[in-house]
């Protein structure tokens, strides 16, 4: 009986691993003082995680999980509440649209797909926020953050792939 429960809990944790790891990454990137990224140039970790898990384990990364990650970003940032939820849902829709072109393809193709998704999400967020504030937000920090996001994608993919291969079983 005890073994059954232990196995059950293990499966539950493994199923929640993509969400847990994504939330942890978002929170870790809020920790002040990490020297490898400049002041206001910060990769959009949530977009990286959502894209990765939607490509590699789509059935384990539901829309509610995505909503929670967006909400978490809204809580810690000073942007209008709802904008990060909107952006991350946009990533979800767009990833599902291009899924067949990027899934089960070489890494570079997936990376190009990610660059497209990240650029589209950043621009739509910039556009919605510009409407919200009734003025155009500066574009240059956005471009640098976008470049940082694209550059960081392989590193995060490596960590997420490690989680997928070592902390999750194949049949889950």
């Amino acid at each position: 009986m005890r073994e059954f429960w232990a196995e059950n809990i293990k499966i539950q944790i493994q199923q929640l691993m993509p969400v847990i790891s994504s939330i942890l990454f978002v929170l870790i990137f809020c920790i002040p003082r990490y020297p490898f990224v400049a002041d206001n140039i910060r990769p959009y970790v949530s977009i990286i995680c959502v894209y990765f898990w939607l490509i590699y384990r789509p059935y384990m990364f539901g829309i509610i999980s995505i909503y929670i990650i967006g909400m978490l970003e809204d809580i810690v940032s000073s942007t209008p509440f709802g904008i990060n939820i909107f952006t991350i849902l946009f990533v979800y829709v767009l990833t599902n649209l291009i899924y067949k072109f990027v899934a089960n393809k070489p890494f570079t193709v997936t990376w190009y797909g990610f660059a497209f998704i990240a650029a589209s999400a950043s621009i739509i967020k910039w556009f919605v926020l510009s409407i919200y504030y009734s003025q155009f937000l500066p574009f240059i920090p956005l471009i640098f953050s976008l470049l940082a996001t694209i550059v960081f994608y392989p590193i995060f993919s490596f960590v997420n792939a490690y989680i997928q291969n070592h902390l999750m079983e194949d049949d889950i």
């Binding site: 929170l27 002040p32 206001n40 140039i41 000073s78 904008i83 950043s122 910039w126 937000l137």
Partner: peptide, 11 residues
């Protein structure tokens, strides 16, 4: 405890 500095927010 946490910083959120990017192109969209600074807090």
């Amino acid at each position: 405890v946490a910083t959120e500095n990017d192109a969209f927010s600074n807090s």
